[in-house]
Design a protein around this nucleic acid. Structure first.
Lengths: 228, 228, 228, 228
DNA sequence: CATGAATGAGCTTTCATTCAT
DNA sequence: CATGAATGAAAGCTCATTCAT
């Protein structure tokens, strides 16, 4: 009995599965290193050499898991967007049936994902211009998709008469813009705000804009920002 | 007495004045070329080579007018901010005594400057991380200063009882964020909006958030977005 | 028991040792190329391009082994000085107990190292002004240290009454200056001298200056220059 | 009577003479600026721009008086050598008939010219490798010529039986080397020596090497270095 | 005579990518 | 699978030289 035969006995699928798992783990490890470099160096470039060093592997290895530097960059950005795609709808779902609660929960979740991936979120603005047109389109499509749950909840609130007849798309995209604002303008907001106070402050503003006057008291819990 | 002789009266100074004028013209020309390159190919970096080519001059010449690439970048960004600093307060002043009109006029002007310098405004987000800490501070200070007129007008509106007691700083900075949004997310907004409809749409949202309920009808002209 | 197995006994270390050896070999190769370029075309500067070409490698490779052009230059110069530091004291030691023999042996060795590294020695004069203050200090310190063995031997000769009471430091540093003279003024000396005749000619001069009159005959072997 | 005719009345020669004088003054001014730049920047390059700035003129002007940067460099170096050629023979002549006095006076003058043009003397070593082969030859020839008066005086001293039969050329060139040593190794000598003490120290060494034993007392004034 | 804006080749240095091991 | 030495194109920047004014 030799190890060679052992490996082959167990069939192709488990081996592939194991390989896949290793591959995913490597990619995660490398992307984590990439993010760390991007935030660490701050204003500087993300060199493949520095990503390799940060990950404790060789440069060559990165090219086994990513075709190019551009793919690494795209994957970092897509990672944030996938995180949003996973968590925002989940938060909306968990918020129950009330459309206003759903809008609030969606915005809350969006902000928290951005806050947790602050550096990567900024990178989206900084680096996506370096990507090919094709990759930029992928990212735009993902971002547009990420607005959908928010605009759907907003539309529901309008339809239910809870919101005044606002421009739904504009309102929803503003939510996204304000969420990004936390990361983009951290130097402005972070001296005076925590994520929590930022979220509640922004919710107070946006909901008092949208809520139909007759429902203000009903949702007054959203309309006064919590103290920092 | 003709203007010719008038101009020549001052002796040696006209020579210096002419040189100054040429210098300013060159700087303007080079900055324009830099902006064009930066927006240009989309995914490209701004290389000094490409700026020179775009401006139709040699690389070496750029260094007679700017000490480094960083200074070119900083000048592009500062240019937009100075434009804002010049035009937003002017618009607010021209809007008359009514604090709500002043807020609206300030936001309108901010958006229009951004729209006119769309590419340069995006560059602020994309490239300012490439600047030195010192230059980044200069830019942050300018941007914070640019919020002041808006937050002052907002405060006045609150003090006059026209606005509900909103978080003034947050509200004012949101105006800035939404103005930037037009440039940052042009791919999202521009299919469905013009600057005019964007401004009126956003004003409808933000003012309906801020206006005290009893003053809604008084400013209803702001509360319904104009059709595109 | 053969040397092969011996070498392999230590496990992972041989890999590192091999890498080290390759690294040292590369550095030597690149420094040799640098010296060749520096002496080379005479009027040329040492560009990294030309060093790479001379060494038959790419420019980028040099930067794996040297942090900058300055480090290459410093290494070339330090190389000569380290050679001196290794060989001059050894020669003095090997010369026995007689102080006069020791001085003669030290000067002889100094001249020979310079002669063997003629081009690099000239570079010290030509290029050290291009180095940073810090690196210049390193080199000055090394050069001052290289005089020490000669001045010590000279002092011994004075103390033993073999030399007249000369200015020891001046005398010793003159020896260094005369040794460098062989490289600096090769176009003057080399038509009429070999290193051997240069050394014996200079020794005749400097020792007849230093030797106490009553010891001249004792060391007459140094006092007549050998024919070329 | 117009100024045109006035100028022409006086004939061609005085005009040319005046032009020549201005030309020489300009060249002197520019060379002085060049030396100042070379010593000032220390380790850096002498750029034509910096020479122009130092001289308070435009770059273009330099090219009216020198064909190229190389010619400026050559002229700086030749300037020192011409100074030597002017002053060393004069000093020897002024020293009277005694060959030993003449040697001493020649060395003294050589050292003083070097000391007064310390930076320019160092430049000879640093920059002459940047010159064309032809210009380097000019400089070598001038330097060889500058040794002549010293070797002639030395030969006279030998012929008169005042010097032992030393190697005349080697002895004379050593004098030059030691004179240069003052500038080349100022960091070594200047802490402990003035030019005066350096000259008398070196004279004590070289003359005690060369003087025939029976003439030591006669020239004992040279054989003990003056205190610093 | 004098200016200095303009040029562009050439410099040092970085880094995405490849490939022999 | 993994390494990391090696490549070379391209970046930012300098400066000798020219020439219209």
């Amino acid at each position: 009995m030799n190890t060679d035969s052992l490996t082959q006995v167990s069939g192709a699928e488990p081996v592939e599965a194991a390989r896949d798992a290793r591959t995913r783990a490597r990619r995660r490890q490398l992307l984590a290193a990439a993010v760390k470099v991007l935030q660490g160096k701050g204003s500087e470039q993300m060199s493949m050499q520095s990503v390799a060093q940060e990950a404790g592997v060789s440069v060559g290895l990165i090219y086994r898991y990513f075709a190019s530097k551009e793919e690494v960059l795209r994957s970092v950005i897509v990672g944030v967007l996938e995180d949003i795609e996973a968590r925002v709808p989940a938060a909306i779902l968990a918020a129950g049936a009330d459309p206003v609660d759903r809008v609030a929960a969606g915005f809350d979740a969006y902000c928290r994902v951005i806050a947790e991936n602050s550096e990567a979120a900024v990178i989206t603005y900084r680096e996506s211009s370096r990507l090919s047109a094709e990759n930029r389109k992928v990212i735009k499509d993902l971002e547009m998709a990420s607005v959908k749950p928010l605009s759907q909840a907003t539309q529901d609130a309008v339809d239910a008469g809870l919101f005044a007849p606002v421009d739904v798309d504009l309102f929803a995209y503003n939510l996204v813009l304000l969420a990004h604002g936390w990361a983009l303008k951290s130097w402005y907001f972070q001296p005076q705000h925590t994520v929590d106070s930022y979220i509640s402050g922004q919710l107070a503003l946006v909901l008092s804009a949208a809520l139909a006057p007759e429902h203000h008291t009903e949702y007054s819990r959203y309309l006064t920002a919590k103290e920092d």
